[in-house]
Write a protein that binds this DNA or RNA. Structure first.
Lengths: 341, 341
DNA sequence: GCCTCTTTGTGAAACGTTTCATGGAACGAA
DNA sequence: TTCGTTCCATGAAACGTTTCACAAAGAGGC
């Protein structure tokens, strides 16, 4: 069905190698022959077979990115950033979705290894040592960790300083006069979550404020946020926090919904700060203050590190790039009179 | 670096074909040999080379989905639906992002063709005849159109009845007593947009109501919605619509934001209905009424049609599956007294 | 002891590229 | 004419699988 180089050669009356040359180094073949070959390609509708090409070359031009959740805007932005770099370099990005499931992640990695991809950007489901990834690295496939495991020796990583993010959020709330502050998020197995919490706790301690009330959620979703807020609303007023810092915006949106449903006003009764600054944060019921991460840049930098390692594995030095988050202050954490601008 | 079947064979002291048999039809090789080979595989850390495998097989187990926008929740759900089917069948899904750019779409299709993917699910950037896709189909790669071009002869398609969706939304608003209704969305080059508009117009005409005011936007985004709403707010009160039907939820969220910023209340001053029922619709400033499409099912069905065609191209009959949307009624289109519950 | 079956393993061919050593033609210089 | 260059085209080898016709060796039936 699909024409091969051989048939093109036959039709153009040249040898097989010549067709290949027209494809890969058109300059070294004479104009007439080149033209004849190109016509034959056109007529037969020839399309290169990438499997054969890769088999011969031993490696592919595809970079994979394995994300925890395709539908999380955080990752879609990271993907976009990575795409811009990889496509600029003539490669292609494939997106794999682990959905936070270790088994799925494992299967994806298996397939990617079989495909001999050029490299893998990954946010692993679990933190800590990654023998599976180590094995891939040993096999010569570069791996860059995204938003995880900074500091491991055998691979690059890009991340945002989550401790700093938590600190910024807590300082902001403390500055606004809040003294009973809650932290909502989970599971604590996620490094991001604990880092943000740690940063917040440190900031509060430094200001001489009490440690935050921690409400752990089973996952970072809108509905988890709703449930956590229900719990908080049930507290006696004297113990109820006047501000909540959420481990991400999805949770914060859920919290916001539930608070509103219970008749509590944000920020007047309870102030709210989220994390990630997703597009919908600004468009929420009450525009949401949120810690913003440079998401696209995270993706771009990760892709750059990967391509760098891939191009020149000998001289490559693993690097761990850490970006600084910043706070986007909106209505959810500001008394009306103090609206910014 | 990477071990090949040959080395495994050598180490296990068997022939090359035997190793292949252990890999593909373990039942036809004797237990002892199988064990020896498996040990060798383990020791060498052998990983199949998928390029070689595909080259030999002539086709891949990868299904591609080319979406207009990875970060649009509509597509992420479709992707998830497709994934569930394809992975259930032992395949893999790669996601490509055209970003609504025809050139990017073209490049993606080129690459996918070179990869000899098993099939392609695609929402093409432009409507109408698709010579590019026809060519792919001719080459024996099944294509299923998602949410586009129902009725074309040489490929399957899945879609949601957008005319019906528009009709449902308009009928709902008319029923609530609205007479001046606006339609916001664009560009009109998108079939979805014109279908939704057509349905709305037909419904209004049938009820003897005037045709809607149409505000065309350059794209379906939050900021486009904001701008459109600014325009509407500028109208003299007597001509200003009392209800707005938006071509999708992003636009509706933008409209909502802008209306609120201008001090107009939703639904009291202006009622609002969106389209897509994305997760954030329910969590918006005012929970958004929205026409809901069975998104995951769209993806699942598309993948099923694709696999069906791929498995048995001879007996395959192209089908065009059309799903029916339904309206999720929320606060944005209901007077308070009439809240559903 | 011979024949036929079955089970298990072998080796070579084929998939479609890219690459590289080789060869021939054309051309100018001597 | 002859030799060295330069320019183009060639054909074969190699990449790592899968598949298939075939062979070897037991197992049983007579």
């Amino acid at each position: 069905m699909a024409a091969s180089i051989k048939e093109v050669a036959q039709r153009a009356g040249v040898s097989l190698g010549t067709v290949s040359n027209v494809l890969n180094r058109p300059d070294i073949v004479s104009p007439q022959t080149r033209k004849r070959v190109q016509e034959a390609i056109e007529e037969l509708g020839f399309v290169r077979n990438d499997s054969a090409r890769q088999l011969r070359a031993g490696r592919s031009r595809t970079v994979a990115i394995v994300v925890l959740d395709v539908s999380n805007p955080f990752f879609t932005d990271v993907v976009r950033g990575a795409e811009s770099i990889v496509e600029g370099a003539g490669g292609m990005v494939v997106v794999c979705n682990s959905g936070g499931d270790a088994a799925r992640e494992h299967r994806h990695l298996d397939v990617l290894e079989e495909q001999r991809v050029q490299g893998i950007l990954v946010t692993p489901v679990s933190d800590g040592k990654q023998p599976r990834l180590d094995r891939i690295v040993t096999r010569g496939i570069p791996v860059v960790l995204v938003d995880r495991g900074a500091g491991l020796a055998n691979q690059c990583s890009v991340a945002v300083d989550d401790v700093l993010g938590g600190r910024i959020a807590a300082e902001h709330l403390a500055e606004r006069g809040h003294r009973r502050i809650a932290f909502v998020g989970g599971p604590m197995a996620l490094r991001q979550v604990t880092d943000r919490r740690t940063g917040a706790e440190a900031a509060l301690a430094e200001q001489g404020l009490p440690a935050p009330l921690v409400v752990e959620t089973p996952m970072l979703s809108v509905s988890a946020g709703r449930q956590a807020a229900d719990e908080i609303v049930g507290l006696p007023t004297t113990r109820r926090p006047t501000a909540i810092f959420c481990a991400n915006d999805l949770v914060a949106l859920g919290v916001l919904q539930a608070l509103t449903a219970h008749g509590l006003r944000v920020p007047d009764d309870i102030a709210l700060v989220g994390y990630d600054d997703i597009e919908f944060a600004a468009g929420a019921a009450v525009p949401l203050s949120s810690v913003r991460q440079p998401r696209e840049q995270l993706g771009r930098t990760a892709a750059q590190l990967l391509l760098e390692e891939s191009t020149d594995p000998e001289h490559h030095e693993h690097r761990h790039v850490v970006f600084q988050p910043e706070l986007a202050v909106r209505q959810s954490s500001e008394r009306k009179r103090r609206r910014t601008r």
